[in-house]
Computed example of a mutant assay.
Amino acid sequence: MKEIALITGASGGLGADIATLFAKDGIDLILVARSKEKLEQRSQELSKYGVQVDILVSDLAKPGAAEELFNQVKGRQLDYLVNNAGVGLYGKFTETDLQTEMDMLYLNINSLTHLTKLVVKEMTARGKGRILNVASTAAFQPGPLMAVYYASKAYVLSFSEAIENELNGTGVTVSTLCPGPTRTEFSNRANLEKSKLFDGGTMASIDVAKAGYVGFRNGKSIIIPGTQNKVLATSIRFMPRKIVTSVVRRMQKEK
């Protein structure tokens, strides 16, 4: 029986690049995103690798979407789960849109947690499986001007590390991918064109995907692509919290 990977946020960017890496390894795919048109295009592109590609249109920012998605794939053995779907929002908390932030929290936290819960139970029953949760280097510190987004990614990292420990010895691994600024559609959707954050250098999506994919397949706990990102994530632990917050604010302030 061929292995199957379910990938959320798979219509473009990092999710699409990770899907390509799975396809090249002959692993069948279930791709999830909001855009049917983009998913169909991605399916056609990946079919050349001789794998089965199924698409599921779902908006995981909506309550109940994760369970509905899981019910659609119930009965199929999921060997890999990649929780990649996520969004951000740039701006002062007093000025940003509340509903957008509530949707962001539901997508970045609730649906990720819900889908992980449903899938991991089946994986542990079989004694085999790998889960990759996509966080960010934002997970390592508070993020003025993206306060809610940074906090949501801190949750993803903390949650993933905790359950990875709980699952030790079960045959199921949980990895967390923590990329820094990456060239994808994410920055446009998050209104980051005003921020200086992406002026300091970015990584190509495919390079982040490769680092995440290799680390994940090897069962690595935390994956931080790029030397600069590793240094920043590590050094923050030794700095006073107020200084960290001030540094991040300067990195993200408007141009």
Rank of each mutant, 00 (worst) to 15 (best):
Met1Glu: 07
Glu3Trp: 01
Ile4Trp: 14
Ala5Arg: 07
Ala5Glu: 05
Ile7Ser: 02
Gly9Pro: 06
Ser11Phe: 09
Gly13Ala: 03
Leu14Met: 03
Ala19Pro: 03
Leu21Ala: 01
Phe22Ile: 03
Ala23Val: 02
Ala23Ile: 06
Gly26Lys: 05
Asp28Ile: 01
Leu29Val: 08
Leu31Asp: 04
Val32Ala: 05
Arg34Phe: 04
Lys36His: 08
Lys36Ile: 00
Glu37Ser: 08
Arg42Thr: 11
Gln44Glu: 11
Gln44Leu: 13
Gln44Tyr: 03
Leu46Val: 13
Lys48Arg: 15
Lys48Thr: 15
Lys48Leu: 11
Tyr49Pro: 10
Gln52Phe: 11
Val53Asp: 12
Asp54Arg: 15
Leu56Asn: 15
Val57Ile: 14
Val57Leu: 08
Asp59Gln: 03
Lys62His: 08
Leu69Phe: 12
Leu69Gly: 02
Gln72Thr: 13
Val73Glu: 04
Val73Ser: 03
Val73Phe: 04
Arg76Gly: 11
Arg76Met: 12
Gln77Glu: 15
Leu78Cys: 08
Asp79Tyr: 08
Asp79Pro: 09
Val82Asp: 03
Asn83Leu: 09
Val87Pro: 02
Gly88Gln: 09
Tyr90Phe: 13
Tyr90Pro: 12
Lys92Val: 14
Lys92Thr: 13
Lys92Ala: 15
Phe93Lys: 01
Phe93Arg: 00
Thr94Val: 14
Thr96Leu: 01
Thr96Tyr: 00
Asp97Val: 01
Leu98Ala: 04
Gln99Trp: 06
Thr100Gln: 08
Met102Leu: 15
Met102Val: 14
Asp103Gln: 09
Asp103Arg: 07
Asn108Ser: 05
Asn108His: 02
Ser111Ala: 09
Leu112Arg: 00
His114Cys: 10
Lys117Pro: 03
Leu118Thr: 06
Val120Ala: 11
Ala125Gly: 10
Arg126Asn: 12
Arg126Tyr: 08
Gly129Gln: 13
Val134Ile: 15
Ser136Cys: 10
Thr137Leu: 08
Phe140Glu: 10
Phe140Arg: 10
Phe140Val: 15
Pro142Met: 11
Pro142Asp: 13
Gly143Trp: 08
Pro144Asn: 12
Pro144Gly: 10
Pro144Gln: 13
Leu145Ser: 06
Ala147Met: 14
Val148Arg: 13
Lys153Arg: 14
Ala154Gln: 14
Tyr155Asn: 07
Ser158Asn: 14
Ser158Gly: 15
Ala162Gln: 10
Glu164Arg: 15
Asn165Trp: 07
Glu166Pro: 07
Glu166Val: 12
Leu167Asn: 09
Thr170Arg: 10
Ser175Tyr: 02
Leu177Thr: 12
Pro179Cys: 04
Pro181Ser: 01
Arg183Asn: 12
Glu185Arg: 09
Glu185Gln: 13
Phe186Glu: 02
Phe186Pro: 04
Ser187Thr: 13
Ser187Pro: 03
Ala190Asp: 04
Glu193Arg: 06
Ser195Arg: 04
Thr202Val: 14
Asp207Met: 00
Val214Leu: 07
Phe216Gln: 05
Phe216Cys: 07
Ile223Gln: 06
Ile224Ala: 07
Pro225Arg: 03
Gln228Asp: 08
Val231Ser: 02
Val231Leu: 12
Leu232Ser: 05
Thr234Asn: 07
Thr234Ser: 10
Ile236Lys: 07
Arg237Phe: 10
Phe238Gln: 00
Lys242Asp: 07
Ser246Leu: 02
Arg249Trp: 05
Arg250Glu: 14
Met251Gln: 11
Gln252Ile: 07
Lys253Gln: 14
